[in-house]
């Protein structure tokens, strides 16, 4: 690859991937490209095709049509070795200890000398290493699943609803582990129906609904598409009057605290507005620029499509 050319390495490429169950199209002609080093969120309500998509990528669900590649090739053992993954719930042998379960995973992944103790300490399970899996709490099970996905020092981690069903403390723990993983340069592919989770953890996001891709790109692209400004001045009525004529303002609404909320047209800089007001000798005493939250964007997306 020549220097100076900005090419992002692709971990996964998905091309026209479709899964058709007898009457339902769970995933419909999905096209995605997951860049190396990203924390890629797959966002959608329950039943939107997230798990089906991950299941196909991980080789347990047979696509009806379309294809995907890992590291530029079809899914084979060497690719599986580089991917640590868990789908839906943590799946382990309930009658075996946490350590024995990790030993089995290590054997499958052909890891010569797995650092099982180290990884158990990392996810804070070392004390319970010899307890049977079935005696673990949900949070511990989820942490063991992450440990199991990390055991082969993967380049990619695939996590499906990693905080599902956990209590706040468990959620915080798991998110901290995920951020830690991402900080090590590991690409993370994560499905979630929690917007807040995607916004907090992910760099990229694909939004699915009923098997269709509604959006894919960076989280900033999604949240930064439109924004609102909360603005205030001595004379609110005048302010409103003046702004109403401005071409960049799409909508004005009154707030209860005596300020206005402006919805701006795409890619408008807030300074445009203040400069314009200053020219009209209106001096702003309150100015807050709010990026659209992922939640409102997400709801907008879903509404627009419906």
């Amino acid at each position: 690859m020549p220097f100076g050319l900005l090419t992002v390495e692709e971990i996964v490429r998905i091309n026209q991937l479709t899964k058709q169950y007898s009457s339902i199209t769970a995933v419909n002609g999905l096209n995605l490209s997951i860049p190396k080093g990203s924390v890629y969120g797959i966002l959608g309500p329950n039943g939107s095709g997230k798990t089906t998509t991950l299941g196909m990528l991980l080789g347990v669900i047979r696509p009806s049509s379309g294809y995907f590649t890992w590291f530029g090739k079809t899914l084979n053992f060497s690719a599986k070795k580089k991917v640590g993954a868990l789908l839906e719930t943590p799946n382990f042998y309930p009658y075996l200890s946490g350590r024995k379960n990790l030993e089995i995973v290590s054997s499958i992944k052909e890891i010569e000398k797995p650092d099982i103790d180290g990884i158990l300490k990392h996810v804070n399970l070392y004390q319970r290493a010899v307890s049977k899996f079935k005696t673990y709490s949900l949070g511990m099970k989820q942490r063991l699943a992450i440990a199991s996905a990390m055991i082969a020092n993967p380049e990619v981690m695939v996590l499906d609803e990693p905080t599902n069903g956990l209590d706040p403390e468990g959620i915080a723990e798991v998110r901290a582990i995920i951020r830690n993983i991402a900080a090590q340069g590991i690409t993370v592919i994560m499905a979630s129906h929690l917007l807040d989770e995607i916004e907090k953890v992910c760099s990229h996001v694909a939004v699915l609904r009923e098997g269709n891709l509604l959006f894919d790109g960076t989280v900033d692209q999604l949240t930064g598409r439109e924004g609102t400004i909360e603005i205030g001045a001595q004379n609110i009525a005048l302010l409103k009057d003046v702004l109403q004529g401005h071409p960049l303002v799409e909508k004005i609404s009154d707030n209860t605290n005596g300020t206005l909320t402006l919805v701006l047209r795409k890619n408008t800089d807030a300074s445009e507005i203040t400069r314009f007001l200053a020219e009209k000798s209106i001096y702003v005493n309150h100015l807050v620029f709010r990026k659209n939250s992922l939640e409102s964007q997400f709801l907008n997306l879903i509404k627009n499509e419906a």
Binding site: L58, F77, K80, A85, L87, E88, N91, K109
Partner: peptide, 14 residues
């Protein structure tokens, strides 16, 4: 039942 077969496949077995 425990979906460990699926996990085995995900982890690397064909």
């Amino acid at each position: 039942q425990n979906k460990t077969m699926r996990q085995n496949i995900i982890d690397g077995l064909s």
